[in-house]
Amino acid sequence: MFKKIAKIFSINSMSRRMRVAFTSIILLLIFSGAMSLFELERVGHDTEKILDASRENIELAEQMITALNKQNNAIIHMAVMRNNSPLYINECKSSINELDQSINIACERIAKSSKESADMLRSSSNCVNTLAREYATGQVHAELRAMREIDSTTTYNTHNWYIDQYNDEYMDLAQRITNFMADSQDLLGNDVNQLSHTAQRAVTPVFISLVVMLVVVLMFYYFMRIYLIKPILRMNRSLGNFITYKMPFDNTIKCRDELETMRERIKTITEKQQL
């Protein structure tokens, strides 16, 4: 059985051997090229994914900050500047919804990596939104009125409420949104590190293929030298010696394939010439 397997690989023609060798090298070249393209595409796809995620995170943080600032601006106008225009009330109400939506998306995104951070962000946002809702629905005014009824000398007003209650929560949420940005970028940093690792790995198969190809080419050169170039050079020298000095053609030259036939023919010619 093993002899049969060995027979499959035995090729008795130099031209066919050369063809097989060249085909192998070309196949390897195509293979390395295809591998490079495939791996580069994969790395490109991963890079795109990271950039998309980064852009989405920045947009999300921007949405949260915009909604928060919108709310803060409306509250300042109403509570500090005492401008209770319906425009600010509507702005405050709409900002509550916008903030809620963007916070929900942000929490979903970071919940996988840090559930604690997501809970803190949601809790902080709930506090700010609750205060804003209380102000927009007039609950804060009602509480202040109740306070004044109990103690008519009190000077506690919406300005104080803003400084004592809302501002602290606002600052806290703003800080948490900044943290979210930093955390999400840190997470992407891990992905980027992974990507550089992946890129390195992507090069490995190509590099191995190239090394294999180099070895194959070296072997090819070596076999060509011993099975083709060397015998031809020796036959040429021996033929030269025959023509110049009438020395007999060298019978010890070891050839195979078509070269063996050529050697035999040269030998026959030289022998005929000598006769």
Binding site: A6, F9, S10, I11, R17, V20, A21, S24, L27, L28, F31, P205, I208, S209, V212, V215, V216, M219, F220, F223, Y227, R256
Partner: peptide, 20 residues
């Protein structure tokens, strides 16, 4: 699979050229 292909290719080459 890739390693098998590369290893087989490396091994087949001398079998084609060198006689038993």
């Amino acid at each position: 699979l890739l390693s098998a292909f590369l290893t087989a290719l490396l091994g087949i080459f001398p079998l084609i050229f060198v006689d038993r």
